[in-house]
Computed example of a mutant assay.
Amino acid sequence: MRRKLLVGGSLSLVVLVGVVVGGYFLMNARGYQVAGRLVDRVDTAAKVVAVTLDDGPGERTPEVLKVLAESGIRATFYLNGRDLAARPEAGRAIAAAGHELGNHTYSHRRMVLVSAGTIRDEVERTDAEIAKTGYQGPITFRPPYGKKLIGLPRYLSAHDRTTVMWDVEPDSGKVASTDAIVAETLAQVRPGSIVLLHVMGERGGDSLAAIPRFVAELRSQGYEFATVSELLGR
């Protein structure tokens, strides 16, 4: 009997470890989710790239819009509802400049192990703030920190929403210089790439300064730039 209990306990532990490890990889998977449509790159031979900017809007928004205008590109901004509510004029300016607005939840919390009501509230309150900017285009979704398990993908699938991840992230999880961001972007970009940058925060200056440099270099290689929805249309 004791041996059976030990064997049963060992099997339970193996199963538990498997569930935990599987859940970890599912939560962090860049190219897979349990339901609905997810894209981290568009499979195309065309030299087209989407630049995406996470978080905000913040105090740096006018500077960001100026750099994008001077670079001649339209970006996709994944914005937080609470920041749109705090700076409605910034959201309106982004929309008026012709950029695409995406949903990055209301409070930028990790959308794992939360209730269905929380998921609905985080997404729909942000949609409402985006609508106030005057933006009328498609609204894709990006989970904060790229985290998702089961509830979030199921909600997005039920509401026909696309989860947009990325395949190039030169400033994520580290303090990177402008030179390093440019170099990593140029080394990793390929046709159909989705580039993730963080330009709104305190350390966003280096990322923002990198945009004109890698845009100019990629253009010299024959690349064009598009919003996420335009890229998806390819």
Rank of each mutant, 00 (worst) to 15 (best):
G58V: 08
Q33C: 07
Y24E: 10
R74P: 00
G81S: 12
I119Q: 02
E89Y: 01
V64T: 14
F25A: 15
I94W: 04
P62Q: 00
A29R: 09
T61E: 01
L68S: 13
I73K: 03
L53Q: 11
L65I: 13
E63C: 08
L16A: 15
A95Y: 14
P57F: 14
I119H: 04
D121L: 09
T52F: 09
E100M: 04
D40E: 11
K66R: 15
A97W: 06
I73E: 11
H99V: 05
Y106S: 13
R30D: 08
G98N: 09
R92Y: 09
G18Y: 02
P62M: 01
Y32S: 00
D54N: 10
V39M: 03
V48D: 11
R60W: 11
V49C: 11
F25I: 03
L113K: 02
E70Y: 12
K47E: 11
L16V: 13
L79Q: 07
M111D: 05
A46L: 07
K66N: 13
A97Y: 14
Y24M: 07
G72T: 08
G56A: 03
H99E: 09
D121M: 07
V42C: 10
K47N: 13
V64W: 04
T76S: 05
L84F: 12
M111P: 14
L113Y: 08
H108C: 10
V42S: 03
P88M: 01
V21I: 14
L16D: 05
G102C: 10
R109D: 14
N80F: 10
P88E: 04
A50H: 03
H104L: 12
N28K: 07
I119A: 02
E89P: 05
R82K: 15
R60L: 03
L101Q: 04
T118A: 03
L68Y: 04
V67N: 01
N28F: 03
V49T: 11
V64A: 12
Y78N: 02
T44R: 09
E59G: 12
G22E: 09
I119F: 06
L65T: 15
R109Y: 10
H99K: 04
A35P: 00
Y106I: 00
V39L: 02
I94H: 02
K47D: 04
F25Y: 14
A75Q: 02
A90Y: 14
D83W: 07
V39W: 05
F77T: 14
P62R: 00
G102T: 08
A93E: 08
V19M: 06
I94A: 14
Y106K: 00
S107M: 07
P88L: 01
E70V: 06
P57C: 05
L16R: 00
P62E: 08
A46N: 03
D54S: 03
D55A: 10
A75G: 14
S115D: 12
A45Q: 04
V49Q: 11
G117L: 05
T76W: 06
A29F: 06
N28P: 00
Q33W: 14
V42D: 06
Y106C: 05
P62C: 02
T61L: 00
